[in-house]
């Protein structure tokens, strides 16, 4: 137990945790949106994120991005990366809905069947990106997807440097970009769901599907919309991840997805603002825990938090459901 270390650098650990939690929060939105409308845990959402990171990698490789490009180019590549990741992730999420979930919804299958299908889809995606693409496409597109199941490095787009120094707390430019862009993306989503016509449709279906259908809301379209929105958020998370950590692998989705799901449950699954609160909270708890014990216990901390939350407050910190906050 390293209490001195934790207390001495509390500010630093909080900053680290916030920038980590921002990525969890963006992914958590995907779980929360789908859960809020369909009461379904989209287990394959972690792979939607993974596909996004590969889209960023593919784009940067195709453009031949070098380490530390000039600032104008860096911004351009980040914007292009965001677009590529959003298209890839949103498309993957839509495809998952279309291929896996829609036939099951037609048959009114029990929730467990949805979950098992989602696990299958996620396994397929992991293997396609870990094995099939490097093996089959790797010859034609050299180094685009790296070697089978290996970690693939990405170029450094922005050199990490300290931007602000408050006492012994240093905030780097990357941490700031990650945090601010995550919050902006979420504010946009929140505005979309709460203020626009489409958002009203989403809330209506979340509240009561049958009545919404009677009022002329096209349920299928709403479902496609939420999968796409969740995918776009995961794409944004994928870009931020690529910028901050500079690598990807076919299996990065698994643990990250579990943590994002924990974040969603922690904040109250189905609740958009809850996802933000839950993600940031989980990020901070994880960094504190890793400091207190040792960094190789980090994953255990997240799972223990999940179990404890589900035991004592299964509706999360802010309470469940996209619908209840609606009125």
């Amino acid at each position: 137990m390293h209490f001195d270390e934790l207390i001495g650098h509390l500010g630093q650990h909080t900053v680290d945790g916030l920038s980590k939690g921002a990525i969890y929060a963006l992914i958590a939105l995907g779980y929360t949106l789908v859960y809020g409308v369909l009461r379904l845990i989209n287990f394959a959402h972690s792979e939607v994120f993974m596909v996004g990171t590969f889209a960023v990698l593919g784009l940067w490789t195709a453009f031949g991005v070098k380490n530390n490009p000039p600032i104008g180019q860096a911004v351009l590549f980040l914007v292009l990366g965001l677009i590529a990741a959003a298209i890839a992730s949103g498309g993957t999420a839509l495809a998952i809905e279309r291929i896996a979930y829609r036939p099951l919804r037609r048959k009114n299958a029990p929730p467990l069947i949805f979950l098992i299908t989602a696990i299958g889809i996620s396994l397929v995606l992991v293997e396609v990106f870990g094995l099939l693409l490097p093996d089959v496409a790797g010859g034609a597109l050299p180094t685009l997807f790296g070697r089978a199941r290996q970690i693939v490095g990405m170029p450094t787009i922005i050199q990490q440097e300290t931007l602000l120094q408050i006492g012994n707390t240093a905030i780097t430019n990357i941490q700031l970009i990650v945090f601010v862009s995550a919050v902006v993306m979420m504010a946009l989503l929140d505005w979309f769901i709460n203020r626009t016509r489409y958002g009203r449709g989403v809330r209506a279906v979340a509240q009561n599907p049958e009545t919404a259908a009677l009022m002329g809301v096209n349920q299928e379209r709403v479902i496609m919309l939420i999968f796409m929105l969740g995918g776009i958020m995961a794409g944004a998370a994928a870009l931020l991840w690529s910028m901050r950590f500079g690598f990807t692998q076919n299996s990065i989705g698994f643990v990250l997805g579990l943590k994002a799901f924990t974040a969603a449950v922690l904040g109250g699954i189905g609740n958009l603002r809850g996802a933000l609160v839950g993600g940031l909270f989980l990020g901070i708890v994880e960094v504190y825990g890793a400091t207190l014990f040792a960094s190789n216990w980090e994953d255990v901390i997240a799972f223990v938090v999940l179990i404890v939350v589900l035991m004592f407050r299964p509706t999360g910190l802010l309470g469940e459901s996209l619908g209840r906050a609606r009125a």
């Binding site: 291929i99 896996a100 036939p103 099951l104 299958a109 069947i113 098992i116 299908t117 696990i119 299958g120 889809i121 996620s122 396994l123 397929v124 992991v126 293997e127 396609v128 094995l131 099939l132 089978a148």
Partner: peptide, 16 residues
């Protein structure tokens, strides 16, 4: 090497 891919596909197909 492709067995996990096959398992995943089998799960999805069987469930649907």
């Amino acid at each position: 090497d492709y067995r996990w891919l096959a398992f995943g596909l089998a799960m999805v197909l069987v469930m649907i």
